[in-house]
Amino acid sequence: MPRLSAERRHRVRFTLNGSAVEAEAEPRMLLTDFLRHELGMTGTHVGCEHGVCGACTIEINGVPARACLTLAVQADGATIRTVEALAPEPGRLSILQEAFRRHHALQCGFCTAGILMSLDNYLRQRPNPTEENLRVFLGGHLCRCTGYVPILAAAMDAAKRLREVPANA
C-alpha cells in the first residue's frame, strides 16, 4: 500500500498536455502549486484556493475540475490538460480563443484560463448549447472584469464556428 510520509517529497508523475512529466511533492502540496511552481506551468491561476472562483480549472482525466481542490499526489497517473495546450500551434489560437479575442471576452485575463478549460471541454460534449446552458455551466466561474456578457457571446460564437469546422476543433 503506497504510503507517502508527510515529511518527505515524493515523486508524482502524470501526463500533462500530452507529455509525461514528473516532479516531487509533499503529500500536502496542492495541484495548483505543483503545476505552477514545480512544473512551471503558470497559465493555471490561483484565485481563491477554496474551489469557488474557478480560475484554476483544468482538465483532469477528460473532465474540467478545480486544481486547487486536488492534491498533487491525487493526480499521480492522471491525464491533465491545462490552458497551455489549447492553441493548435504557437502563434495560432484555437477557435474558442479567437472568439474570446474577437468578443473582448477577457480584460485582465486572470480568470480566463479556467473559463477556457471549462468551455473547451463543454463545447466538445455539447456542441449545441443554448445561452442558458452556458450560463448554468459558467456559474462555476467568477469573472470580475467583463460582466460575463462578452464571455457568453464568445462561447456562443465559438460553438457555432466549431459546428461549422469540426476538423479544426
Binding site: 500500500m1 503506497p2 504510503r3 507517502l4 508527510a6 509533499e26 503529500p27 500536502r28
Partner: peptide, 21 residues
C-alpha cells in the same frame, strides 16, 4: 492558505483502507 502536513495512503484494497482506519 496551505494545508498542514499529513501522511497520504493510497489504499489498494478496501481491507487496506480498513487497516489504516
Amino acid at each position: 492558505m496551505k494545508p498542514p502536513n499529513f501522511d497520504y495512503i493510497r489504499a489498494e484494497s478496501v481491507a487496506e483502507a480498513h487497516a489504516a482506519l
